[in-house]
Simulated assay, not measured.
Amino acid sequence: MTTLPHDRYCSELLLQTDRLRSVLVGADLTAKVPTCPAWTLRDLAVHVGGAHRWAGELVRTRARDDLPDALVPGFAGPEGAGPGSATGDDGRAALDAWLAEGAAATALALREAGPDATVWTWGWDGSAAFWARRMTHETVVHLADAALTTGAAYAPAPDVAADTIDEWLRIVSHAQAEGDPEAAELRGGGRSLHLHATDVPGAEWLVELGEDGFTWRHAHAKATVAVRGTLTDLMLLMNRRIAPGADGLEVLGDAAFLDFWLARSSFG
């Protein structure tokens, strides 16, 4: 499997944001998000919209360094989005418009820049392509948070769900290379983790721990622990949105090693 085309990421950013907006329609914006317990649904929406604007501003200005939140127009959220809004709708109309406008502006900036434009990132790839992929999956995962909170249906396209797992493994690998203390423990012992999607042929991952760290590839092989489930559920598991014991997931082998992996890829 490979990364998606740049324009596809831009389209998915808009699509996933529209789906998030739909989930929020009629929802209790003060409801606590179980998968992000410090947040309400309103907090989650403002986080996503702020992230879009921050990444979009980095790309638009071809930033060469990190950009402080205070320099990102509209980063903190829309006027009138809080409880007790003068509009009488709890600020949800302003919040909805703000989410849509931010995603549209970011997708436009990414399309105008193209994937190869040089821009600051915190990761391994200093290009606009990094932000197109990152903002897509930021939205995909937080849409899951909103869906799990409200009981809404959730089913990203298979290639998007698979790429979300690919990107997350790349992020954990990058964190390990940068000396993150949790990710640093993902090494040694010859242990391995196999993910096997039961609904999408070929959607499999093999993660292998070595003395210098871990590597991963798309493969079918015997492992220390294997997890079988739908591709969506595997993606949610790897992003720690559902637990190994969730309905529909089958864990075979050393379940303690799966817990070890999940606990040490929990940063961010």
Rank of each mutant, 00 (worst) to 15 (best):
T2L: 15
T3N: 14
D7Q: 07
C10P: 10
Q16C: 01
L20T: 07
S22D: 15
S22M: 04
S22F: 02
A27H: 12
K32V: 15
V33K: 10
T35V: 14
P37H: 00
L41R: 11
L41I: 03
R42P: 08
H47K: 10
H47V: 09
A51E: 10
H52I: 04
W54G: 04
G56M: 10
L58W: 00
R60C: 00
A70D: 14
V72M: 06
G74Y: 04
A76H: 15
P78S: 06
A81I: 06
T87S: 15
R92T: 14
L95S: 08
A97K: 13
A97L: 14
W98H: 03
A100C: 08
G102V: 03
G102I: 03
A103D: 02
A107M: 06
R111N: 10
D116P: 02
D116H: 11
V119T: 05
T121V: 13
T121H: 14
G126H: 13
V140T: 08
D145W: 03
A152V: 01
A152W: 02
A152Q: 04
Y154F: 08
A155W: 00
P158T: 00
T164Y: 00
I165T: 05
D166K: 01
R170C: 08
I171R: 08
H174Q: 13
A175W: 12
Q176G: 09
Q176D: 04
A177G: 15
E178T: 15
G179Q: 10
E182Q: 15
E182H: 15
A197Y: 01
A197Q: 01
P201M: 08
A203Q: 10
H218E: 14
H218K: 14
A221F: 13
A223W: 06
V227H: 04
T230K: 10
M238N: 15
M238E: 14
R240A: 12
R241P: 09
A246K: 07
G248V: 06
G248N: 05
G253D: 05
D254N: 09
F257W: 06
F257M: 02
F257V: 05
W261K: 02
L262M: 08
A263P: 06
S265K: 01
